[in-house]
Design a protein around this nucleic acid. Sequence first.
DNA 1: TAAAAGACTACTAATTCTATATACTTTGTA
DNA 2: TACAAAGTATATAGAATTAGTAGTCTTTTA
Lengths: 147, 147
Amino acid sequence: MLSKKTRYAIKALVVLGKNFGEAPMQISKIASEEHIPKKFLEQILLDLRNAGLLYSKKGAGGGYGLVKDPAEIFVVQVLRLTGGPVALLPCVSLNFYQKCDECISEATCGVRDVFLDVRNATLKILSETSIADIIRREGLLIENMEV
Amino acid sequence: MLSKKTRYAIKALVVLGKNFGEAPMQISKIASEEHIPKKFLEQILLDLRNAGLLYSKKGAGGGYGLVKDPAEIFVVQVLRLTGGPVALLPCVSLNFYQKCDECISEATCGVRDVFLDVRNATLKILSETSIADIIRREGLLIENMEV
DNA sequence: TAAAAGACTACTAATTCTATATACTTTGTA
DNA sequence: TACAAAGTATATAGAATTAGTAGTCTTTTA
């Protein structure tokens, strides 16, 4: 399961993606629109800014905005920045690798082998899907509802 | 990430799968072979037994064994029995569904849409892979090492 | 210079996970 | 028949993680 932090981060980026090219958007606006606790969101946006995904502007009229086009921000990046490993086992994680302490031989572990496949499938989707894609898909979902 | 409970459960089933058709195997043997805390494993095997995956025999010469052929036990079942949801978001989980409490419209949520794809890809692999497959893959991995 | 807005640090509460402890029941065999 | 082997069951403790809150500081603009 994704942590709430990761979930909130993705949702915030989607909102900021829709706002891309316009004036920066305040934390409190994002928080109230997306029903995210404001103080918690502050921390998350700060992380995303420190990672270079967002710019911020202090003072009156300040707020946050995307540094890059939403089409160039991929979901997998957000997971990694917010500490959500893609893999279901630590021993198949690229960025959060850890040896399973009970494991005897990693190289010949059949369980690992299966979850390697799972990771690869997940990674493919998440590294091909951008914030812009999510916004586009929302549009499609809304269209389909109206029909 | 899978919980240790889920991991231990899969590993125990693999060991029992290799032992299928023979005399029941003791918890302590499985625990020491797989480096799993014995008391913890006890609870896990009990759950799997109550779910109908294992039979048990008390007393001297007792132990646990698979009820079904390892080719008929799929990894996805083990995840579900041990409480490990397949989905990365509660709102796309089939067996552990929960509404995201911050979500405004589930039907038009682009984030949900993406993680629905991820869940489907994961589910496909995990529901096609059996304990027997894992054992077979271990064999292949060992062969490749020896070459 | 006051208000708006983000930056940063620390802390707390809640939950979940992992593991252990203890007492009990069943079964085989000397 | 008594004892040892082995599973059953429940309770609980400890650790780690997550989620969220609080408070203070800094920057910017009107």
